[in-house]
Nucleic acid binder design. Structure first.
Length: 453
RNA sequence: GUGGUCGUAGCUCAGCAGGUUAGAGCGUCAGAUUGUGGCUCUGAAGGUCGCCGGUUCGAAUCCGGUCUUCCACCCCA
């Protein structure tokens, strides 16, 4: 026996039945993106490591898959480096490329590189796999697909509104109930300033983000560990557990901030977005959540996060506004806002809520039984006609036992089977069997297509 | 990356205070039924018990390592 076949940790094969569901998700998302006027692009699976490193924080750098250089890279290295045993220094010297970690940073690179060919504001979408060297868990894979929509080169909050509409539209079409959570990074900045801890913004946001998971006491404990003063924590407490409607929460919060400053600006922006959304028919719940922080530290304005209302699996869509993402690639002052749908998690949610329409898995509508050379030739002519008129059909390739051919049709859920044997060949007829009811009738061959309409 | 957990037939799982030929259900294949699938009945095939090493007269069973799965932390889609 040869070795057991397997795929790398955290990666998966997809069977035809799984692909049916996955394609349904991708098609739905793509249709919505098209409908809202976004255009598709693609970028390579691998990027130069210099484009990727330092964009996702220290943690993100660790999760990058690096690609070993080709050729005799070791021979060129100084002895000192080789013998030092420091694998991270070594890795930087022998790896120039890495697999993309998300689609946003490659997009920023793309925009700067091709800016002369783009019309701004540029609205693009991108549906491709990304890779993270994370330890796999439920709903967490090392290879997964992101479906990104971004608009770059516009400060307008109308873009935020459009993205919220896209989120709602996609999940309504997929039949997934969700909660759309919104916040604004400036609100968080304002809060940190108000309690006199601007410098601890990251620690505060990371802690606050865990509210749902570890509770208020847990959040306070974590902040204390990160060196935030007890007085500051006491000030913060009532803010993060604030209740009421979106506008009530916003008003309460706005009153605490100075007239000028990031806090006020954040609440103003948030109010504008929510006011516009309230004029529209958004089917899913939209919630302003001060405790929503999100890790990626390039967000500067609105933050989005979408969670399934039925399944506990983390966020299935997320994103936000970044004022200067292209700055690191040499182009200042381009503001962008975008979101990313996690197709793999959406699939997991839909599997758990039993949510794929059965039509999604249907493929062939009619199978011709193969009784031998002459009979098959007659089928071939009919088959050609059917396919040309858009009816998906196939001819069983081998002239084997009828039982075997019927079983094939049955296993593949093919709804109709057509038989042209000795008798039918002589009469110019075909016997059509409905696999669901088991009923069958013999009809002239010309009538076959019409019977299947 | 830290801590834990799982791995026996294609699938779901039993077996295990270490002891002859490792079991079941489902699936597969063959036949009952040589132009009729699903239902029924009969029979068969299929396992170096994840992999490597150790303890032992003897290991699926105990120990160590490794890979994989799932979980918590970290972080995230």
């Amino acid at each position: 026996m040869s070795q057991k076949p397997s795929v790398p940790k955290g990666t998966r094969d997809f069977l035809p039945v799984e692909m049916a569901g996955r394609n349904h998700i991708f098609d739905t998302i793509r249709n919505v993106f098209d409908l809202y006027g976004y255009v598709p692009i693609e970028t390579p699976a691998m990027e130069n490591l210099s484009s990727l490193l330092g964009k996702y924080g220290e943690e993100g750098d660790k999760l990058l898959f690096r690609i070993l250089n080709s050729g005799d890279f070791m021979g060129k290295l100084p002895e000192k480096t080789k013998s030092s045993g420091n694998s991270s220094i070594l890795a930087n010297m022998i790896c120039d490329r890495g697999l993309r970690y998300d689609l946003t940073v490659p997009f920023a690179r793309f925009v700067v590189q091709h800016r002369s060919k783009l019309t701004f504001p540029f609205k693009r979408y991108q549906i491709q796999p990304v890779w993270r060297a994370d330890r796999p868990q439920k709903g967490r894979y090392r290879e997964f697909h992101q479906c990104d929509v971004d608009v770059i080169g516009s400060d307008s909050l109308l873009n935020e509104v459009e993205l919220a509409r896209i989120i709602d539209d996609v999940f309504v079409r997929l039949g997934v109930k969700v909660v759309i959570k919104l916040n604004n990074r400036k609100v968080l900045t304002g809060i940190a300033g108000m309690i006199g801890q601007q410098d601890k913004l990251t620690a505060i946001t990371v802690a606050i983000d865990k509210l749902e998971k570890i509770g208020l006491d847990g959040v306070c404990l974590e902040m204390a560990e990160k060196g935030i003063s007890p007085e500051a924590i006491d000030k913060l407490k009532p803010l993060i557990v604030m209740t009421g409607s979106n506008s009530e929460k916003l008003e309460k919060l706005a009153a605490l901030f100075d007239i000028e400053g990031p806090g006020r600006e954040g609440t103003r922006e948030m109010k504008e977005v929510l006011d516009m959304l309230s004029l529209l028919e958004i089917k899913n719940r939209v919630e302003f959540d001060v405790a929503l922080a999100r890790g990626l530290n390039y967000y500067t304005g609105t933050i989005f996060e979408v969670k399934s209302a039925d399944v506990e699996i983390g966020s299935i869509c997320g994103g936000g506004r970044y004022d200067d993402l292209t700055g690191v690639f040499g182009q200042e002052g381009l503001s962008g806002v975008g979101i990313s749908f996690g197709a793999d998690r959406i699939y997991d949610v839909m599997m758990q809520t039993g949510g794929f329409p059965s039509a999604v898995s249907a493929s062939t509508r009619l199978m011709f039984v193969n009784f031998g050379k002459k009979e098959a030739a007659a089928c071939l002519l009919l088959l050609e006609k059917l396919c040309k008129s858009g009816i998906s059909a196939e001819l069983y390739p081998d002239s084997v036992k009828l039982k075997k051919q019927m079983q094939y049709a049955n296993n593949l859920n093919i709804p109709f089977v057509a038989m042209i044997g000795e008798q039918e060949l002589k009469d110019g007829t075909v016997t059509l069997k409905d696999m669901k009811t088991g009923a069958q009738q013999t009809i002239p061959q010309e009538e076959l297509a019409a019977k299947l309409e």
